Each structure stands twice: as C-alpha cells, then as structure tokens.
Amino acid sequence: MVDDDLVVVKEADRFLRDVRLAQGRAETTTKAYAEGVSLFLRWSSRTGRDWRAAARDMGLFMVWLRWTPGNGGQRRTVIPGPGSRPVRGDSRINKVLTAVRMFLSHATVNRTVPGWGLEQVYELGDVRDLPAEARGEDGGMRVRLRARHRLQEPETDIDRASNEEIVAMFLACQSARDRLTVLLISRVGLRPGQATGLHRTDPHLMMDSRPLGCDAEGAHLHVIRRQNENNAWSKSKKSWVMPVDFLVVQGFDQYALERHDRLGPGGSDFLLVNLFRPPFGAPITPAAIGELFEALSRRAGLDRLITPRMGRHAMASNVADAGGRLDEVQALLGHKHAGSARPYLHPKESRLRDAVDRVPSPRAIEREVGR
C-alpha cells in the first residue's frame, strides 16, 4: 500500500500481509481491509493528521466517510443538507471502521502506534461485570474490547429461493455443468467460492470410500480450504465432509459425461471448468456462478433475481423444514457456531401452521391433568 506520494506505508503493508498470510483471510477480505485502511490514511493526509495519532478524531473520520467520495474526482465533498445523499451508507462505514480498528490494533502490537490509541477506538473492560457463567472456567481475568464507533445498521433479511424457483432455474439450464452448479448451491448449500474451489478428487460418490482412503460413509464431498488460481476460497477455515443425495450424484454423472465429451481426459484438476468458451478446461470463477444465477432467473421467467446466497438459504431452510435440528444445519453449512445458522432459516408457512396446531388446547391439557 502506498500513500499520495507513492511511498509504501510499511505498517499498512505489514498489516495486510499478516491478514492474508498469517491469519489466512480470503483475498476478498484482504482487499476490503486494504480499501478501508487506504481511506483512513487518505483522510489523515488530507486533513493534516498523523495517522498514528488520528484515532482521537475517529468521529470526524466517520463524517468524512459519509460525505467525501474516495475516487479523487473534481468534487471532493458532498454538502450535507436537504436532498443530499450520503456517499457511503452505514454498513459500508462500519466495514471501513472495522478495518481501521484492526489496523490500529496491529500497529499498537508492533509499537508503531502509542498504547493510548486503543482507548480511542475501543471501550476497555474486564469480565468482572459478566455473569459467572460467562467468565470461563479458569477464573482468570480477561480484558474485553467493544468498538466505540459503530453505526446502527437497519436489519436486512435475506430471502430464501423457493423450491419452485429453483426447479424453474434447473429446467432453464442448457448444460449438465450448469445443472450441477445449481445443485451444489441450492441442494448442497455450498458458497460460490466453495463450489468453484472443488477439485476432481473432492467428490467421493461411492457408497464405500475406504478404497480411496476415506472413512466417511455414503456419497459425499470434501470441502477443503485452498489457495486456488481462480480466487475460489472457502470462507470456513476448517475442512468438512458434506453428504450428498442421489440427485446430486446423478448431476455429477451427467456432468462427467459432458466434460469428457468436450475435453476428453484433459482440463484442469478443478471440477467446474470452461466447456463452451476459451480457455477451455480452465476453472470457472466464483463471480461466474453469480452471473449464471442471474441469467437463469431471466431465462426461467422469474419475477425476481435469485442469487446464490438465496439458494444457500433455501438449502438450510429445507433441511429445517424436513425436521433437521439447528446443530445439523450448522454442520451442513460449515459454520463454527450453531447460532451462525439461524439467519439462514426461513420456515415454510405450513411448518409454522403445523407448529401451532401441535400445541394442545386448554381442554386437552385439563383432561390430561385430570388423569
């Protein structure tokens, strides 16, 4: 990362390298952090502040973020007032502030920023004000940090794709590869980066995989985090086994025939590759899945655009509708905590009706007690 004079900002460069390599963050995450830190450094430079001591004016930075474009165009500011629209929304500002806090914390650890800087961006506390159950079993003292500067974002719901919409998109596919892609997202629940990061050795579609050195039962996929040439990246740091059903197995079989017909035994080791445009055999990118879902939504004549994320939500909701517990949904989505799976659950109205109907009437309860 360089400043306005094209001089490398060593601390920022070291921070981003550590995020990418030592912490193992995705390239997209590292890029987002880089954009946030660059805005902070630009604001510090243009307002005559030393970034090492600028944490005390974080509130002014938030105002600058809301009303100042970051493209360096002729119009450097937007004047607040009736009819004026902020340059950045609350969500974007919060993401920038998160990157800046991490950058300043990293610089504090490396003694580039004075220790008092953390007190400007975090409220410092300890676990003594927490309930005993939340303090940990070792009884030791722990310091807690809470961000001082954070905007209240409106809650936004991510809708699930309905089964009818997914079927319509599936029928609108013009190749076995596209049909398998739709299944991997909406029936297996993979993220685009996980689907495009699959290698041909990751699917184990036999009932007994022990000859492959794998003890997992039944047909399944191995979702593995790798550094891939197509920038496909699994968000989950851990690897896990994902069971698949007979529809997905059929999708794999049909795609294998189509791929061999187009490429023979050639092509890259990636599972999903270019079959219909050059470079033939090269892995498709995560962005290509988003483009595919957009095209299928139009081709199927749907009333709205279905995104890969909505397909992943559909998979989680279908598991829950079929009686799956939260810990099962968590494991299938590759989440670390069970609570992470809750936003993915969108129960059918019929399931909600059944839940209400299962509640016994007061008379039934009275008769049961009378016995």
Rank of each mutant, 00 (worst) to 15 (best):
R177G: 01
P154Y: 13
G193S: 08
P203Y: 00
R191I: 05
A176W: 04
R142V: 13
T201D: 10
D159F: 12
G193N: 08
L151R: 15
R144F: 11
S186P: 02
R187C: 05
T196M: 08
E155G: 13
A168Q: 07
T196H: 09
M169I: 04
G189W: 04
E165F: 02
M169L: 06
G197T: 03
R191W: 09
L145C: 11
V182E: 06
L183D: 06
R144M: 12
L184F: 09
D159I: 12
G189N: 03
R150D: 08
E153S: 13
P154G: 13
D178Q: 04
S162W: 11
C173W: 04
P203L: 00
V188E: 02
R142T: 12
N163D: 14
I185E: 02
R200V: 10
R160Q: 13
M169Q: 01
T156L: 14
M141N: 03
I166K: 00
I158M: 15
Q194E: 15
R146N: 06
Q152P: 06
L151C: 13
T201H: 05
R191E: 05
I185W: 06
N163W: 08
A176E: 09
M169F: 05
I166Q: 02
L198V: 07
L151W: 14
A147S: 15
A161F: 05
I158A: 14
C173H: 03
D157N: 14
P203C: 00
E164H: 07
R150M: 15
T181I: 12
E165Q: 07
G139W: 09
E165W: 03
L205W: 01
D178F: 02
S175K: 11
S162F: 10
L183T: 03
P192Y: 08
A147Q: 14
R187I: 01
G139I: 10
R179H: 01
M141A: 11
A176N: 07
L145V: 09
